[in-house]
Amino acid sequence: MLNTLLGSLSSGVAASTSSYESIASATGTGSSGTISFTSIPQTYKHLQLRWHCLASSAYIVLKVNGSLPNYLHYLYGSGSAVGANGAANLGFLMVNETTSTTYPFVGITDIIDYSSTTKNKTIRNFSGKDSNSTAGEVNLESYLINSTTEITSIDIIAQTANWDTTTTVALYGIKG
């Protein structure tokens, strides 16, 4: 939107004609383990999170509208084993590994049809961390939000740790 406005007002800035727009981003503060996006505009078809996270050892949890997803099903590879499982009321973004202050834990999370008021919501996640050792993992995950309420807030939480200042989480909107 800003690019569109500036593009109209200034010949030096290209107007945005993209179907993929940046909504907001956040960086770690070093003193909090929660990054939140609130008041998410309902003007896109889908959302995408791209995250690059570092913190002392902690599991990372996704919350939507203040709650854990109702269900999670996952497939992971540890470098030596493959595993798959499912669970209720679980929001882990990586199921067996924890964060590190040295090796970034990264992911891309798609939130499908997030503004619908008639459909339950499906979220998919592709994430991983490699540490040049046995402590690596790659994940494919699907979450169900068993609610037709539109999604207006998202939290990325490091349990029992604070996000390092090198952590970045960006929220994008995809037009339908």
Binding site: Y76, G77, S78, G79, V82, D130, G136, V138, L140
Partner: peptide, 20 residues
């Protein structure tokens, strides 16, 4: 460089890693 991978071959799954 290093990696951790998960692969499906059409008949099986495998996870592998490479270090250094």
């Amino acid at each position: 460089y290093s990696y951790t991978a998960i692969t499906g071959t059409g008949s099986t799954t495998v996870s592998q890693r490479g270090t250094s």
